[in-house]
Simulated scan of single mutants.
Amino acid sequence: MVRIEGGEPESALEAAVLGGANAVAVETAAGWEVIQYRSAALVGSGTWALTHLLRAQQGTEVEMRAGAPQGATAVFLDGRPARAEIGRSERGLPLVCRAGPAGAAPGGGGFREVGFIPAGVHGRPWSPCGLTIETTQAGRSVRWTPRVRLYGDGWDGEPAAVDPLRFRVRVLDGEVVVRTFEVEGSSLLYPLAAFASDFPRGPGDEARIAVAQWGEGFGWGVEASVGLEIGRV
């Protein structure tokens, strides 16, 4: 449910939404989640119900899990908002954004300014998918599939990797990190001896494996995690 100022939202065909139409950025406690909607219906004066949602678009699952409270800001990404072209070297630095009439001097009348710190989320690697753990005689075999962050949805051929195939695999017991691996590729053997050393009494319900991909100029991306199941070796 959103209260909208300005233009009215429009419903779209499913194919158009899957092609990127009807995107909205919603402010959460962890940043901005990008969602898409298929149907828009007027339910009150300036109030619309957006339904058939696609959540956590563009790798914003961290923001989705944080959730947006009632009264949060939503910005329709319909082509009118301009992209701020900010270099990697300015990520994390306090900057000032000024906006005003086109062609006017930035310090002149009609301009407003706001301070902000760019996080460079557009360069954040997405979390891997298909994370699985299999118990073997040698230990735990961990596998995952990287997601291609840019131009990965073409129909012809396999998409080219955008981010390096470098991954951090963390073994956690609750919030405590008990072991960390770095690998190049999409699989890892968690050796039986290491497993026994990390969990001499066996893993509890909060034990899990978390995998994140490295992004040049950003660092480690969003983690995918799965429970470290107990099985017969």
Rank of each mutant, 00 (worst) to 15 (best):
A161M: 07
I209C: 04
G123P: 01
V211Q: 07
A21L: 01
T47D: 12
S39L: 13
W220I: 04
R147K: 11
G59T: 05
R168T: 12
G67P: 02
Q36S: 01
V169G: 07
R140S: 14
L150T: 09
L165G: 11
F167I: 09
D173N: 15
W220D: 04
I230P: 01
V148M: 03
E85S: 09
H122N: 08
P81T: 13
I209F: 13
G103S: 03
W32M: 07
I86V: 15
F218C: 02
G221N: 13
A25H: 01
E206Y: 05
E175I: 03
R201C: 07
A210K: 03
A12D: 08
A193H: 04
R98N: 02
A15E: 13
V96D: 02
L165Q: 12
A138S: 13
F76S: 04
H122E: 15
G215F: 14
I35Y: 00
T180W: 07
E229M: 11
E158A: 12
W155Q: 11
A49I: 09
Y37R: 00
G67Y: 10
A74R: 03
L165W: 08
F181G: 06
M64E: 05
C129F: 02
S89D: 11
L50Q: 03
V211G: 02
A138C: 12
L18Y: 00
R170Y: 04
P101L: 06
P9T: 10
E33I: 04
G202I: 13
V178S: 01
G110I: 01
E85Y: 04
R83S: 09
R143K: 14
E8S: 09
E175G: 05
G185H: 03
I230C: 03
E85R: 10
V162R: 09
T145D: 07
V2P: 05
V24P: 00
A224Q: 08
L192S: 07
E33W: 10
W155P: 06
L53K: 00
R83F: 00
S11F: 03
V148F: 04
G152I: 05
A194Y: 07
R112P: 00
G219W: 11
I86Y: 10
G67D: 02
I35G: 00
G100L: 06
E158D: 11
A72D: 06
V226K: 03
A160R: 13
C97G: 14
C97H: 07
L172C: 09
G185A: 12
P146N: 10
V34W: 00
R98C: 09
G46I: 06
G100R: 08
R91E: 02
A196P: 00
G44Q: 07
G31L: 04
G103H: 06
G202F: 11
G130C: 08
L172I: 03
A160L: 10
P159F: 04
A212K: 07
T135C: 13
L53E: 00
P94Q: 14
V171M: 11
A104Y: 11
G115C: 01
R179I: 05
L13R: 15
R3Q: 12
A207S: 14
L95C: 05
A25Q: 05
W126D: 09
V183P: 05
F167P: 00
S11V: 08
G19F: 01
G215A: 14
G217N: 11
V178K: 14
T180F: 13
V43H: 00
